[in-house]
């Protein structure tokens, strides 16, 4: 079985390397490069980014940012059904409750002309 972690933000695609373990949180197969070790056992970067007790690296940073961006524009509901995320990604997004969120307070004046 191959690693099902989806890399990227705009052009998401599966890693495809041979899987070495399964994510203890979302149970998708993951390769050694995408395995994050933490208090709940091996986890994929997406789950590690949202669970306490896991370290940070480029993959978790991208996974966290990707969830944040997509959740503001409909999240798993909007994108998952259109083939933007794999089924495990959509499921884990839904599981984490990453639905549409209000945008953050801006530091500049939107209305200024």
């Amino acid at each position: 079985m191959n690693c099902q972690w989806q890399m990227g933000v705009l052009v998401m695609r599966e890693c495809g390397m041979p899987a070495a373990a399964g994510c203890a949180i979302c149970s998708r197969p993951i390769c050694a490069a995408h395995t994050m070790m933490g208090q709940n056992g091996p986890a994929c970067p997406g789950c590690a980014a949202h669970t306490a007790g896991y370290g940070e690296n480029d993959d978790t940073e991208i996974a966290g940012a990707r969830d944040q961006y997509y959740s503001q524009y409909g999240g798993a509901t909007q994108f998952g059904s259109r083939g933007y995320f794999s089924r495990p990604d959509s499921a884990s997004m839904a599981q984490r409750g990453l639905q549409q969120k209000p945008t953050q307070q801006r530091q500049y004046d939107d209305k200024e002309t």
């Binding site: 705009l10 695609r13 524009y73």
Partner: peptide
């Protein structure tokens, strides 16, 4: 983040399926 959100929205307008 704002620049990334511009790209994410553009990416979200891609036709569904068959693009990758």
């Amino acid at each position: 983040e704002d620049i990334m959100k511009l790209f994410v929205r553009l990416s979200g307008m891609r036709p569904a399926g068959g693009t990758r």
